[in-house]
Write a protein that binds this DNA or RNA. Sequence first.
DNA 1: ATGGTGGTCGCACCA
Length: 268
Amino acid sequence: MPFTIATWNINSVRLRIGLVERFLSEYAPDVLCLQETKCPDDLFPHNNFHAAGYEVVGVSGQKGYHGVAVVSRRPFEVVERRRFCSKDDCRHMSVRVQAGAKSLLVHNFYVPAGGDEPNPDVNPKFRHKLDFIEEMREVPAEHSADSGSILVGDLNVAPHPNDVWSHKQMLGVVSHTPVETEGLESMRKAGQWVDLMRHGVPDDEKLYTWWSYRAADWLASNRGRRLDHVWGSPGMESHLTGIRMLKDLRGWERPSDHVPVLATFDLD
DNA sequence: ATGGTGGTCGCACCA
């Protein structure tokens, strides 16, 4: 049995619950990690997920902003809802789930966007983003013979030159500045994480998971960025059998500006 | 220049 896990910045789980239901019906991931649920825990639409066959739900939400959730067709336990940068923001949840022969520790992250001005001295949101990425160094890719880790989420950084539509034109734009891309890559290597979306993909291939709402025609201009990520502990790449960025969903009615990333593993 | 939320019904804040 393959194990499938998806990550999706949904930009309000209540507003887009219909899209989530359609996605679960058509793609049926074992585990779905959501970000930007914008939903307090007592208002999370549990019933919709139960009706879709997702009995296991872990939520870490707040009113108006941020919020992450994990829903699953397999039993899991919430390991931790970690707070970063001494703030109460709901930006992380880790769960443990059995997948084939492996016990998987899954981290679901929503990294701060960082505002518009890429100068930490004048923009506290950018300072927060850099500090958050620095603190993420403390999250290692734990693994053993019968366990592994997966880290997914909206990391709000497009690290590779072909994770953006124009490397040169984006170098001064928050999400692709050198201090962010180098910080994220340094943190990824410190934790020994493997970038599973870039594994085995030619360097010159464009990969996007997000297209701005502000474009007059997002599909025609195609100025995307890869802000959403799937990382694995060392060795997980050998179990990966497929990974897809579901671009079509950006064209669904009233879409999120992010599309789901769906990864499939053979762990038996 | 678009979209979501919240607390007010036009606007601030966030992405």
